[in-house]
Structure formats: structure tokens, C-alpha cells
Simulated scan of single mutants.
Amino acid sequence: MSLSSCQMTCQRQIAFGCLLLVCFVVVFFTYYKPEIEFPDCSDYLKRGNHSCVCPVEAQTQGSNPNPPTDGPQQIQDVEVDAEPDTLLLIWMWPFGHKFDLSCDMFKYKGCRLTDDKSLYHKAHGVFIHHRDIHGNLENLPSEPRPWFQKWVWWNMESPTHCAKLPRLDNLFNLTFCYRSDSHIPAPYGHFLPQTSEVESFQLPTKDKLVCWIVSNWNAAFKRVQYYNELKEHIQIETYGRAFGKNVDDQNYDSIVSSCKFYLSFENSQHKDYITEKLFKPMRLGAVPVVLGTSRENYENHIPGDSFIHVNDFSSPKELAERLLHLGQDTTEYMRYFDWKKRYKVEDTQFGREHACKACRYLQENRGYHASHNLTKWFWDQ
């Protein structure tokens, strides 16, 4: 075969191959019809320079605020007002309770919350409350997950009080709970440094030594067993549904502030499970007596001289003797409030603040995340 004939044969083969490729592309887009939205260049404008990069490059750069400016795919001098809002879809209301969907009070710019499930394909994140997930997962999203979307596992209950669902492994991208090693940690409360000079702490008027407000009563709970022993050695003023004395928010504040000591007993003992039962009494001027995780774990969250831990005593009787002593020694008792010169306590707003915090995290962390072993991480350690 001559050289020219060989060249013509090769050209025909190349042309035929190109024709097949074109046909495949036409058929693919005709029948598959992928829902692909190519964002405007403004979607990928990075703060700090006036350039935008193609969608593929933007994905690989993650949250880098200063991408490289060299390369043929960049368009110079493109100006936009702002990046698109980060949209978080509240897939299920926690325990059926709705909350305000505005993040304005937290000063989170560009974070938008919604409960409109028709926006699923546009949502950057889906906020899913564990206690409301059905055991067969039938009430989770059934449509394919967009490539840019992250599912956020939301749970503020301890492992003892929420069902283990092994099928959740490899399903979520991010964890949001009270645990300090969660992707998005959400403690029930926290200490903030005082930003200005603090006047001397004024102790609220006290007419009770030890108080406890409890609704969830279970004889198998460690806190109930400890209380039953402690009450034999010291008088404890009790309130709450468990004692037939319902307490509303206003009564709660007045009762707790009138007590020298409050039994901040958790319903279960787990790492970082430190709830409002601790933070509210501290804010109201009562010294918490804690039963929960270890003292060391508590001290990761609050000053070590601000509380009394039951584990510091060999028995409930010994604890009672210590509380009776402190009830008479004002100087020693007041040392438990030295922290107020340095810090103030803030409670976390369940629901709204959580959702806004999750949205903020998604806004600032665009990269890939995965939570493969949720069961082992939360329940099995």
C-alpha cells in the first residue's frame, strides 16, 4: 500500500471514530439528561483578587481563599457583589419543634436556612436530627445526593438515650453534637472571657442549702441511686415532675438562684456529656455538684475550682458533710465563684443556634468530608 493510501485510511478511521464519539454524546445527553448547572464565574470568585476559575478547579481548591492566578482558564477583572448564600436544609424538625430560620442574630452573613424539601437539589447541606430518624431510614432523603451536598448528623442526646442505627455508617459527611471531637462541636454551654472589668460578684439571696429539679426518674439511673443515699445525710429540696412539682422557666431561675448547691446530675455518664444541668445553675449563682463524666473531662470545659464532683468523696455521706461545712463557712464557699471575675457563662440555644452554626461551618469548609464509622465513634467507645 502506498504512503498516500495509508494516510487516507488513517484519516477515515479517525473520522469514523469521531463520528461514533459525537453520536454517543448526543445519545447520552438525550436520554440521561443530567441535572448539571454550570455556575456563573461569579460563583467561584475568590476573596482577595478579581479572578475566577473554572468549576473543576474551584472544587479541588476547597476553602483556599487565595487560589493561584496563573493559567489559561482564568478570566480577569470580573466583579461580583458576593458569593452565593450557603443553603442548609432542615430535613426534620427536632422532636417536631419548629424554630426561627433566620441567622441574623448570630451575624452569620450568607447563611440561609430552609425547611422546603423542594430545595433539596440546591442545598449545600442537609441537617438531620438523629432522634427523629426512623429505624428503617425510610424518612431520609431518597433522591441521589448532589455532588456538592453534605449530610450533617445532628444529635444532642447521649448514647444511652438514642438508638444505635448501624445503617448510618458511610451515610453522613459531618457530625454535629456535644462531643468535642465532633466535626462541629456543640457544647450545651460555654465560658467566655470577661471583656471588661467586672464588679464584685453579688451572691443571690440563699434560703436553701441543696436543691434538685428532675423530671426523668428511673430507679436504675446512677443519679437516682446516689440521691437516695445522699438524702439520708442532708436535706435536699426537690422539684420537678418526678416529685409532682412542675417547674416553669421563671420558677426555675428563682429556685436555683436561692440554693447554695444544685445537684447537676446527668442522666447518663459519657465523654463530654455535660448539659444545661451544669451551665444554668452556674449562671444563676449556685455551686453545681456534678455526677456525670470524670472530673478531668469536666475541667476540659469549666474551671476546676468552680464545681464539686461526687467522685472526690468516698461516699454520699462524706459529700454531705462537706456541703454542710461549706454552708456554714461563707469565705470558703465564695471561692467557688472566683471564676466570675474572669469568665461569664453562655447557654447554647437548641435548634436555631445549632442550625446556624452548621451552616457557618459549611460556608467555611467547602472541602470533602466523610463520617464512615459513626456507630463505632459515638456508641462503641
Rank of each mutant, 00 (worst) to 15 (best):
V56K: 14
E57H: 13
N64W: 12
N66I: 15
T69F: 01
T69I: 04
D70F: 08
P72L: 14
Q73Y: 14
Q73E: 09
D77G: 00
V78E: 09
V78D: 05
E79H: 14
E79D: 10
V80P: 13
D81C: 14
A82H: 15
A82V: 13
P84T: 04
P84G: 05
P84R: 05
D85N: 14
T86E: 00
L87H: 04
L88T: 05
L88V: 10
L88Q: 04
L89C: 02
W91V: 04
M92E: 08
M92V: 08
W93P: 11
W93R: 07
W93C: 07
P94S: 02
P94H: 03
P94L: 03
P94W: 02
F95I: 08
G96E: 03
H97E: 02
F99T: 03
D100F: 00
C103M: 01
M105D: 01
M105H: 02
M105I: 07
K107P: 01
K109F: 05
K109P: 00
C111R: 08
C111A: 12
C111S: 10
R112F: 06
D115I: 01
K117D: 00
K117Y: 05
S118T: 14
S118N: 12
Y120S: 00
Y120V: 00
H121Q: 11
A123V: 01
A123D: 00
G125K: 04
V126E: 01
V126M: 04
V126T: 11
F127R: 00
H129T: 09
H129L: 10
H130F: 08
R131V: 01
D132V: 12
D132W: 12
I133Q: 04
H134E: 09
H134L: 06
N136G: 11
L137D: 06
R145Y: 04
R145V: 10
P146M: 02
W147C: 02
F148T: 05
Q149H: 03
K150M: 10
W151A: 02
W151S: 02
W151K: 04
V152W: 06
W153P: 03
W153E: 02
W154H: 12
N155P: 07
N155I: 10
M156R: 11
E157P: 00
S158W: 11
S158Q: 09
T160N: 07
H161V: 06
H161A: 03
C162H: 08
K164R: 10
L165I: 15
L165R: 12
P166S: 09
P166G: 04
R167V: 04
D169P: 08
N170M: 06
F172Q: 05
F172R: 03
N173C: 10
L174E: 07
L174S: 03
T175R: 06
F176L: 15
F176N: 12
C177H: 13
S180A: 14
D181E: 08
S182T: 09
S182R: 05
H183D: 13
H183S: 09
H183N: 11
I184D: 10
I184S: 06
P187Y: 09
P187N: 12
Y188D: 10
G189P: 13
F191G: 11
L192G: 01
L192F: 09
L192Q: 09
Q194R: 15
T195Y: 13
S196E: 14
S196W: 04
